[in-house]
Nucleic acid binder design. Structure first.
Lengths: 334, 334
DNA sequence: CAAGAAATTGTAATCGTTTACAACTATCAT
DNA sequence: ATGATAGTTGTAAACGATTACAATTTCTTG
C-alpha cells in the first residue's frame, strides 16, 4: 500500500508538499501540483484517513445508535440524519443495538475512543444519569425515544399532544370505548401517549377503563396479542388506538382472523405513518411523524455540539399530523 | 481529554506499561496493574482507537454498503452480517447509498483510506471491471445483488432455480397465463429470475408472451404500475409472479382497488419472504431467501479475505424455499 | 553472597498524516 | 549590489497509541 512518503519520493518533493496538494492548499507551484498528482495517480495512492484523523483529532464520522432497522420508522429518521450529515461533510455510521445494553456499550465505546465525532441516539438503554454524563463529555443528541430528565439536546414530536389529537379524532367520529395498545413503562413516548389518551377521554367526559389498556409493545405481534386479549372482553371496544403502525396492523390482522371487519365493525388507528400504513388493506388512519425532519434536525444539533461542546442544549418538538385513511369509521352525517 | 501519557504520569509509570495493562499483557506486576487501573479510572480515560489503529493498521470495522434500509430484506441481511462480525470481534458499519454512485464512491473511499478493514456490497453501482479491481486490492465481498463476471467472493441464492421453482409451482396449481413483474436489466437477479420464469414455461410447453412481462422494479409502486398496465390487457392473466414482496403487495393493492379478489380471481406470488409477506391480507405465497444466513456467510467470507487478501474467491449459493400461503389459488382436487 | 535467569519496566522508534516554522528562491525597489 | 517581500518548499515535531529492544529489578541457586 502506497503511503505519502512513496508519493513524495516519486514526485521528488517532500511529504509536506504532497500533503499540501492533497488538501488543496494554494501555495504550491502549478508544476509541482501536477507532478504530485501524477505520482498519486501512478501509485493509485489513497491517503490513509487515520493519519489525518489522528493529527487533526477529528473523524468527520457520526454514529447513529439504533435499536433496529427492521422498523421503517427508524430507517426514515436515519435517512434524514444521513442527508444532513453529508451536507456538512460528515458521514453517518449506523450501529444496531437490538436494545442490548452490552452491544450498545460497545458502540458507545467507539465514541469515547474517538472513532467518531459525535453520537445520535434514537433509543438508548442508558438511564438519565449515564446519558447526561456522556453528553457532557462527548457530543451527543437524543432523538425519537427520549430519556426523561436527561441533560442532552433532543428532537422528537410532542407525544402527549399527538395522542390527544388522535383520540380526540376518534371521539369526534363517535367512538366511546377506545382501547389503547402501548409499550409500557420502558418507553417514555408510550407513557406520554397514554397521558394524551387519558386527557382526551377526560375532556370528553368519558370514563377511563383500565381493562382497555394493553401494554404489549410496538411490534406486529404485540398488536396481535392485544387483539387476542381484546376479543375476550365481555364487550368489544368501538376503536383501538395503537402506538405504532406495526401494532395497529397486528391488531387488524388478528381481528380479521376472527371475522371482524376493520372500519365497519371496529376502528383502528396507528402511529408513525410508515409506508405500510398507506399500503395496507385497509389503509391505516394514523399519526404522522416527520421522520426525515426529526433525523435532519437531530443531526444539525449534533454538528452544533461537535463544533462547540459547551453550547446550550436544545429540546426541539417537531409538528405531527393526523393522516386520515380507511381504518377508522367516519361519523354518520345525519 | 486524558491520554495515555496522563495516565502514565499519574500512575508513575511509563506509557509502555500503561499500554501493557490496557492490552492485558501478563508481564506486569500486580501492584502496577492496580496503580494503572486506578489512574485510568480516576481520569476516566478511554484509549483513543486511532492511535492503536494507526500503529496496528487494522480497524476491526467492516463496512456494509446498502442501497436502502427501508427494505426489510436488507435489514435482515445486515443483521446476519452484524452477528457474524461481532462473533469475530469486528463491528459492522452500515453505509446507505440510495444506489447513488457519488455517495457510494464516498464510502468506498473510506475503505481505500483504511477506515475499515473490509467491505460487503449488498448492491453496487460499480461495473465488473471496477469491482474486480477494488476487490483485488481491498478485502471485499459481493452479496444479494451481484455483478455478473466480477472477480470477487459472492453469496446469494440461485435466482434462476428459485424463479423456476416458483413458476413451476404456479403451473402445477393450474395457472397458464402467468405475468412476470421484474426489475429489468439493471438488476442481475431480475434477469436470472426471468430466465427461470421462461424455463418453467418452456418445460411445461406454455408459450412465452412478451406482453406479460412488466419491467417496473422492486417497489410497492412498481407493483402498482404493473397491475395498472395488466388490467388493461384484453385478457387477464391467471397469476402474477413478482420479483419482490413489495411489488407483489403493490399488485394486490391495485387489483383490490379494481374489485379483484386475489387468490379467488387471480393468484399473486412474491419473492424474498419479508415480514410483510406473512402479515399482509391475504398472506403472501413467496420465495423465501435465507436473508440472515446470506449476511452471516458474506461476513465470514469477508473476514477470511481480511486475514488473507490473496485467498481464493468463493461463490456461494444458499438454498431458497417456497413459502406457501394464501395469495395463490390451489388446484382444485377433482 | 555472587552470578545468572526471570520478571518487570522504560526508552525510543514507529504507524501515516498534518502543520508550525525555518529555509530557500525569485522578484523588485532602492 | 542590497535588503525586503512574497512565493515555494523542506524539516521535524506533533497526534496517541503499540512494541522491539534495552535496562533495570527481583528471584533463584550453587
Amino acid at each position: 500500500m502506497a503511503t505519502i512518503k512513496d508519493v513524495a519520493k516519486l514526485a521528488g518533493v517532500s511529504v509536506a508538499t504532497v500533503s499540501r496538494v492533497l488538501n488543496d492548499y494554494d501555495n504550491v507551484r502549478g508544476e509541482t501540483v501536477q507532478a504530485v498528482k501524477k505520482a498519486i495517480k501512478e501509485l493509485d495512492y489513497h491517503p490513509n484517513f487515520l493519519g489525518r484523523t489522528l493529527r487533526r483529532l477529528e473523524t468527520t464520522k457520526i454514529l447513529v445508535v439504533v435499536p433496529t432497522i427492521s422498523n421503517q420508522f427508524y430507517s426514515r429518521v436515519v435517512k434524514g440524519i444521513q442527508t444532513a450529515a453529508l451536507a456538512e461533510g460528515y458521514h453517518a455510521m449506523i450501529a444496531i443495538t437490538n436494545s442490548d445494553p452490552v452491544v450498545e456499550k460497545e458502540f458507545i465505546d467507539m465514541a469515547k475512543r474517538k472513532l467518531v465525532d459525535g453520537t445520535i441516539f434514537l433509543h438508548t438503554t442508558m438511564d438519565a444519569g449515564k446519558l447526561s454524563k456522556f453528553a457532557a463529555s462527548y457530543p451527543a443528541v437524543s432523538s425519537c425515544e427520549l430519556v426523561p430528565e436527561a441533560d442532552i439536546s433532543t428532537v422528537s414530536i410532542d407525544n402527549f399532544q399527538a395522542a390527544l389529537d388522535a383520540v380526540r379524532f376518534l371521539i369526534e367520529q363517535g367512538h366511546q370505548r377506545i382501547a389503547f395498545v402501548c409499550a409500557g413503562e420502558l418507553y417514555h413516548s408510550s407513557q406520554l401517549r397514554e397521558k394524551g389518551y387519558r386527557a382526551a377521554l377526560e375532556e370528553a367526559g368519558l370514563p377511563f377503563r383500565p381493562e382497555l389498556i394493553f401494554n404489549e409493545g410496538f411490534t406486529f405481534n404485540a398488536g396481535r396479542r392485544a387483539a387476542k386479549r381484546l376479543l375476550e372482553l365481555p364487550e368489544l371496544p368501538d376503536a383501538v388506538f395503537a402506538t405504532s403502525d406495526s401494532a395497529a396492523i397486528g391488531v387488524i390482522s388478528e381481528l380479521s382472523n376472527h371475522g371482524l371487519h376493520v372500519c365497519e365493525d371496529i376502528s383502528v388507528m396507528g402511529f408513525d405513518n410508515n409506508q405500510i400504513a398507506e399500503y395496507y388493506l385497509p389503509s391505516l388512519t394514523t399519526v404522522s411523524q416527520p421522520q426525515f425532519d426529526i433525523g435532519h434536525k437531530a443531526c444539525e444539533l449534533l454538528i452544533k455540539k461537535i463544533r462547540d461542546l459547551a453550547c446550550e442544549n436544545e429540546c426541539i418538538l417537531l409538528p405531527h399530523k393526523l393522516e386520515y385513511r380507511n381504518s377508522v369509521k367516519k361519523r354518520r352525517v345525519l
